[in-house]
Every structure is written in C-alpha cells, then in structure tokens.
Design a protein around this nucleic acid. Sequence first.
RNA 1: GGCCCCGUAGUUCAACGGAUAGAACGCAAGCUUGCGGAGCUUGUAAUAUAGGUUCGAUUCCUGUCGGGGUCACCA
Length: 560
Amino acid sequence: MIRGLLENEIKKSLAALGVEAETVNLEHPTDLTHGDYATNVALAYAKKTGQNPRDLALKIAEELSRQSHEYVEKVEIAGPGFINFFLSSKFFAKSVREILEKGDKYGHSIHVSGSKTIVEYTDPNPFKEFHIGHLMSNTIGEAVSRIIEAGGAEVKRACYQGDVGAHVAMAVWGLLKEGGEPSVISVLAKAYAAGARAYKTDESAKAEITEINKKIYDRSDERINQLYDQGRKLSLDYFETIYQRLGTKFDYYFFESIAGPFGAEVVKSNVGPVFTQSDGAVVFRGEDYGLHTRVFINSQGLPTYEAKELGLSKVKHDTYPYDLSIVVTGNEVNEYFKVLLKTMELVFPELAAKTRHVSHGMLRLPTGKMSSRTGDVITAESLLTEVEGLVRKKISDRDLPAQEKDEIARAVSVGAIKYSILKQAAGRDIIFDFEKSLSFEGDSGPYLQYAHTRTASILVKAREAGIGPKVPIETEKNEVIRLAYRFPEVIEEAGKDLSPHVIATYLIQLAAAFSGWYAETKIVDPANPASAERVALAAAVGQVLKNGLGLLGIAAPNKM
RNA sequence: GGCCCCGUAGUUCAACGGAUAGAACGCAAGCUUGCGGAGCUUGUAAUAUAGGUUCGAUUCCUGUCGGGGUCACCA
C-alpha cells in the first residue's frame, strides 16, 4: 500500500537527519488542497532536535525529494510545519486499474489473516419478540463480522439464545391458559404477553409459572414438553426468516440451556479464590477491583447473566478455538460486562485477553409513528414491513417487472434501516427518523445505493456506445479518484476499531464526490477520447460503493 | 450519593493531540439542448462552562452545570 511506502520514506529521511522515529503519523488531510497524505513528524520531533518545525520540515522534504518516487508528484511544506504529499496521476491510474482487476475482492487484505474470530450478536430469546433492539445488534454484528473477514480473518457468527428461564415459563403458561397451539408466531407473542402480565399481577399465576419453569427443566410433564418443544422450534424458525431477510447466516447457536449449567459449574468450582458465598447466593466482590458486587448464582442455585456468559466464553472456545471473541450487546449491560471480564481474567485469563465488547444504544423511533403506545415492544418485522411499504410506494411509478420491484423494495428498505444504525459510532442511542432515512437524500443508505445505480447505468450506456472502460498510464485527477483508493485503509481502520461507521462515513464522502463529478462531467461521450477512462473511473467508484455497502450488509442493486 | 458513558450549527451525526472543526436535514438563492433531478452548486450556522497540561486541545487532566446507564439475586 502507498501508505506503508510513504511511512518508510519518511523514516529514512528522518534517519538521514539523525532523528530516530519509532512512529510516523500519516493522515489524509480533511482538505484535499493540502494533499493526499500529510505528516506532522516535523512538529512532533522539532523540540527533540531543538529546531524550528518549519526548518526541520524543509530538511525532511529535501531528503524526501532525493528519494522521490514515481507515485509522488510533489511534497510541500505548509502551515506550522506539515509535510504534504500529492500523489501522481500514475498512481491514480494504477489504483483504478487495481480496483477493476480485483472487483468484488477490492479492499480485502491479509492484515489479520490466519486469525480466528467469533462474533456473538443478535441474541434473541425464543418465545419472545424479535424486537428492534435485536435488529440493531444484528446489523452491527453482521457488519463487524464482514469487516473483519475483509481483513483476512476467519469469522464465525454466533447467536446466543435464552431457551430456558422465567420468560419461557411465562409463555408456556400463556399457551396453557389460552389453550392455543403454538403454530404461528403471533400466538406465542400473545401467550408471552399474557404470562408476563399475570406474573406481575397475579400471585397464583406466579406460583404456576414457577412450577412450569421447574417442569421445563426436568421435563416431567408431557403437555408442557410438547408446548415447549413446539414453541421453541416455532420461534427459532421464525428468527431464521428474519436472518434471511437481513442477510445473516449463523455458524453456531449457543443455548442458555447449555451455557447456564456449565457457567454455574465454573462459578461453583471457583468459590473461594474468585467467588464468595453470601446470603445463599454466590457473588463476585467487584469492589476489590473498583467495580461492584454482582450475583453470579442466585439463592435458588440458578446462574445469572454473568455466570452464563462466563460459561459461554469457554463453550465458545471449545467449539471454535478463537483468537478474538467479540460480543455485541446493548449498553445497559456495560457495567455487568466489566465485572464479567474481570472474573474471566481470573478464571480464564487467556480467554479474557481475547474478548472484546461492542455495545450499542437503543434504536428509538420518533413519537407518533409506530411508537409504542402502551409500552409494547416494536418488532423488527413491523419496522421492516413499514419501511418496505414506504419504499414500495416511492417506486410504484417505476417501469419495472413486479419481481424486480420486490427485490428493490427489500434492498432499499433494509439498506435504509441498516445505514441509519451504522452511520454513527455504536454506543449511543439512535433515533430512527423515517423522514430522513426515507427521503433518500444526503446521509442515507438509499443515497449510497442511488449513487451505485448511477454508476451501473453509466456502464450500460457505455457498453451500448461501444466505450469500454480503459485505464491509461496516467489519468485525470479529481476528487473522486483521490478518494477511491483509500478504501482498503478505511476497512483496516474500521476493523481495528470495530467501527462500521468509519466505512459509512467514507462511502458518503465518496458518493458525494462522485455525484458532483457526475453532474458536471459528461462521462459517456463518444466524441471525447477521455470518455473511456471516465467510464473506468465510474466503474471503479461503483465497485467501491458496492463492496463498501456489502461490508455494511447492504445490497447494491443496479436499478432502483 | 458512588462508579461508568455522554454534552459539537436550529436538528441528526463526523473529526489517530494538528492546518480555516467536516457532512446531512432545515432555511435562502441558483442549476435540465447531458449518462436516472431520489441529484448538483453557493450561502447560513456549532465545540455546555471555568481552569490546567502542550508548540498546538472538540480530543488529555481537574472543577461546575446538564443528560443517560448502573449500584446483589431479570437480561
């Protein structure tokens, strides 16, 4: 990559001046008039060498020009002592060629190849709703998975599901009361809601539910077994339809019925060195580590979230010996997760060192539209369906076959939702704004998809006109080409920080540059000899947009 | 109250300790004899507050104010 090359040259230049530089900071200036890369080494090392930053910068630039490279057009000193690099047309021509040659693989690298990563995300509970929180986790987890895969690692996707516990007993209680067979998902949802309500308000129902919970564990009741098995399968099958719609395919499913008992065992065998008996429960004294005390096994002998997740870390590693384990959750568990990680350090130190937590805020809808009136959860399906309907309306006047319209409506609606989740750094709440996400203007998924369809239709027109994409040795320089080659670096950064939004931000910048160029430049023009290379650039931009959207889990249709 | 996270244009978001703090929506003014106007161009407007560290602070440290999470058996 050009970046490494420049870093080396800077280091060599510094060495020639007798400056030992362990780190070289190289960045893309926000303003393209400041060049394609800039380094602040002169500012950073001025003091050490007792020189004025600009003087040092000047000397470094002299050294650099001595070893100048065909891909660097010029080196400039600017501001307080920045050294700015302007890349050459030769470099840009080469980068366009590379994008077209690598195609769908462009951006993929090998910087984490050979490593094994497991990503746990979504984690819906059978018998309960798949709500928009799960949608958020799924979107982030899938994007993170794809980004890490693009770095060359092997990635396994894992979903952890609570198939036992009070919530399940509540649903089964509801089924018994209503006498309904769990044959459609709405029956299950209703049964759970009834059970949850009764559990809070009705003492005898509460006792019944507790009893059912026990029977689920020991499988002593035929009728309950039957309802449980049916309901569990129905739920899991239903979740699969959503994963398919969203574009996720899990490699592993871990269940609470396995991780729970195992976690409890792990905790029990570490009472003394790590955990403490207290009031009939087993707790971890987090205060010794600046955290707070958490219960791992409650006084009824049942493992809590922390114990299960602790057990799960080992179950995962036994299943797939990972180098890196990423867990995506809502940020309400942040404090618990810290405690969990501390116990993991004590019990499974080698696993704790490999674990990273990505937490996200809540997905909130504006009041009025689909907002929950009575505290009901909003299901992922209802949001998807609502948005898809709006998209369908928007494209209703398109002259396209019905099946293609269906595909477009799906791609655009999923893209709109996913993009609005991924465009900002995970951690804070996201306000899903129907107007903004679906006005398809500016900072939105559909805007990116639209930019991509424009590149696609350019290629169609070019083919009709017999203008092939052709990359010359040197090429026209513009903002578009000066952004396109950065894609691999962007993926690397997003992977390092587990931050899909880095890609989203970059794609918007690229798409905006492309749209501006598109508006002022006639790309397909048989009368202009430059047309073939412009078509090549348009193709390259389309490829980068497609690959980038792909990393976010968003489809890039050719028409919309 | 303790601990953790967060305060950036009217709004929603960006910005490895770097240059004139970037976008989008909104608002104002423009753009089609040209590949999709779901677009483009120009303008408007912000680092909560007081200190400190630094050549340089939205970023790091401390105080204040404001918002959110959490503080033993639900996740």
